[in-house]
Design a protein around this nucleic acid. Structure first.
Length: 592
RNA sequence: GGCCCCGUAGCUCAAUUGAAUAGAGCAUCUGACUACGGAUCAGAAGGUUUCAGGUUUGAAUCCUGACGGGGUCACCA
């Protein structure tokens, strides 16, 4: 149990004893003591002043006296400055903590809690390759899953392939017209890129057609509808829905190419799903909901036959849930899919990793399910994340300023290779070992870059900054790990050695205090659904270790006791860094 | 226009259940390898937290208003 969690009941007990004052533990504010003051943890006293009618200085002194007297094994000393009670924890406590945990590989992780969560992420369209935005989504979904697992949840990863619709028909039509029966194999192009190229060709020709129509006097809106390419695409969509064999064959063939491409990318970043849903299957299943909603009086039918729900009382709008021709919409499918997933996994919570432009949609989805009194409705959580933008602004496929996922990965890996070669520290590595190392560093850098920012916030991807492997980056943390491992190859901590009541030096203590917080960080990351908590933490640990490393020698320590202490510290730092990084999906090398 | 989100160092980001002098990294400048890995470390400089009010012992954080930016309001997904 963390120190803070141990301290809180002691404080509430002391307040009761001293003043017969009842406080909820959650109402106590206990922070890390600022470095400019003496102490480890600080209790903020201001909130007691009013009810106790005593000055914070007096409360602090009385509380400090009692705590140090009653719990001398935990509290070494205290001081009061203004309204802050600064508590110093005993060295014995810290040393004991280190000694019992430094080899614990599962440090901070929790036992199963019986809660089942489904996380849906990635969910790409099958008409073009993945881009940087997908990577943020995938890394987030993957990491959120791992963090939940580490906190005791049972988690299933799912994905919806958006494999049907007008956008798919566009690339199909592009291929039909310009494909000349080429294949990814015959052209040696990765399947998803191959298909994406025809989507681009479609858009180009279509754009020309619209331009011609506009210049011949048609208004733009009309032109966009009437352009021959669009007409054809819509006909194809219709044919697809009618089950036209020729269209279906082409559709299957092209989707298969895309999936092969996606699989290659997923494999490279170590991603896999427990279950993939296909929109071509799910787009029908929402209709049952419409029936149910009508019966319950939650939905209403309009004169033209379309079905709506009135959400104005909840501050939202009127929302259409079924077209007048009886076909499903996006929201209809999502209703059905929620149910389907519930059947498959009996989840307590269902996460949707979807960009924040769909906040409204997700609000509507949850609200409708709540109105239908679905048992799983309250467990729906939109893990909303901000878009990745470039320094030049938002990425737009049509304007061609999209950072392709495969390209950026290649670039990061090649930068990693270049740096590694320049430094020449792993000259004895085999070809295969080098390849693996470059992937670990390059992809680790990319992952760290995308995960270090609070998911809720939009982020700017600066290509120049992303290939800098110094400072607040994945390689910095990896490097620290490799350096520790280098020491540990020279000497190991002896688990049977009993550390004495060491005077802890500031650099040593700072590190122990930080390591002790890992379980709290892990909890916070899960509660906030925020992997950046761990990225920032891992960086802080690495930085603190590097400072410690520069100040103190491990192998040539002043005494045998110090050497053991520092070996244990090193061992634990490596474990915690490795653990935190793995939860981000980042591997840490032994050497680099 | 309605609703939602955002505005912190030159740049990218922390700190938002209110707490001490708002922290990092990059970039800039100055230092450190005859101690275990220099993808490192130490230091300097850099701020009216967009602005104006308000609540509070205490505000980047909460409230009101203004300004600036983004998203959304499809019988698209």
């Amino acid at each position: 149990m963390s120190v803070v969690k141990q301290i809180k009941p002691l404080v509430t007990k002391a307040l009761k004893e001293l003043y017969n004052f009842d406080v909820d533990e959650d109402d106590l504010t206990i922070n890390i003591t600022k470095p400019e003051f003496e102490g480890d943890y600080t209790l903020v006293l201001f909130s007691f002043v009013k009810t106790l009618k005593k000055s914070p200085e007096v409360i602090g002194k009385e509380l400090g006296d009692l705590l140090t007297a009653q719990h001398a094994t935990i509290f070494h000393s205290y001081n009061v400055i203004k309204g802050f009670l600064n508590l110093t924890i005993t060295n014995d406590y810290w040393i004991n903590f280190l000694q019992t945990n430094f080899l614990a590989v599962h440090f901070g992780k929790k036992e199963p809690n019986g809660i089942t969560v489904v996380v849906e992420y990635s969910s790409p369209n099958t008409n073009k390759p993945l881009h940087l935005g997908h990577l943020r989504n995938i890394f987030l979904g993957w990491s959120a899953t791992e963090i939940l697992k580490a906190n005791g949840y049972e988690v299933f990863k799912t994905c919806v392939a958006n494999d049907r619709g007008i956008h798919i028909c566009k690339s199909m039509l592009g291929y039909q017209k310009f494909g000349d029966s080429a294949t990814p194999k015959s052209t040696n192009v990765k399947g998803d890129h191959f298909v994406g190229d025809y989507y681009v060709q479609f858009e180009q020709v279509y754009k020309e057609q619209v331009k011609d129509l506009v210049s011949s006097g048609v208004n733009e809106e009309e032109a966009k509808k009437e352009a021959p390419m669009m007409k054809e695409a819509q006909k194809m969509l219709h044919d697809w829905e009618q089950g036209e064999p020729e269209v279906l064959t082409l559709w299957k063939k092209m989707n298969e190419w895309v999936y092969q491409g996606f699989d290659e990318t997923y494999k490279r970043i170590g991603n896999e799903f427990d279950k993939v849903y296909y929109e071509s299957d799910t787009y029908i299943i929402g209709k049952r909901f419409v029936e149910e909603g009508l019966q319950k009086g939650v939905f209403f039918k309009k004169q033209d036959g379309s079905v709506c729900i009135d959400l104005t009382a909840d501050g939202l709008d009127e929302k259409l849930v079924l077209r007048k021709d009886g076909t499903s919409l996006y929201i209809t499918q999502d209703l059905g899919l929620a149910d389907e997933k519930y059947k498959d996994f009996q989840y307590n919570e269902s996460f949707y990793v979807i960009a924040d432009e769909q906040n409204y949609h997700m609000n509507v989805l949850k609200l409708i399910l709540q109105k239908l009194k679905k048992p799983y409705a309250d467990g729906i959580y939109h893990l909303s994340y901000g878009l990745v933008e470039l320094p030049t602004g938002r990425m737009k496929t049509r304007e061609g300023n999209v950072v392709d996922a495969d390209d950026i990965m290649d670039e990061m890996v090649s930068v990693a290779a270049k740096h590694t070669e320049e430094l020449g520290k792993v000259k004895d590595f085999s070809e295969a070992e080098l390849k693996e190392l470059y992937d670990i560093i390059g992809l680790g850098a990319l992952r760290f870059f995308l995960l270090r920012v609070d998911p809720k916030k939009k982020m700017i991807f600066n290509p120049e900054e992303s290939i800098d492997f110094h400072g607040f980056t994945g390689p910095f943390v990896q490097y620290t790990h490799a350096r520790i491992k280098s020491i540990l190859r020279k000497g190991k901590a002896d688990p049977t050695y009993k550390l004495g009541s060491n005077e802890l030096l500031p650099g040593e203590k700072e590190l122990i205090v930080l390591l002790e917080q890992y379980p709290v960080m892990l909890e916070q990351a899960a509660e906030e659904h925020n992997p950046s908590v761990l990225a920032i933490y891992a960086f802080t640990v690495a930085k603190t270790y590097n400072t410690f490393y520069a100040e103190h020698s491990v192998m040539n320590a002043e005494s045998a006791d110090k050497k053991q202490l520092r070996l244990q510290l090193s061992e634990m730092t490596a474990n915690v860094i490795s653990s935190a990084m793995h939860l981000l999906g980042i591997n840490v090398p032994e050497r680099m």
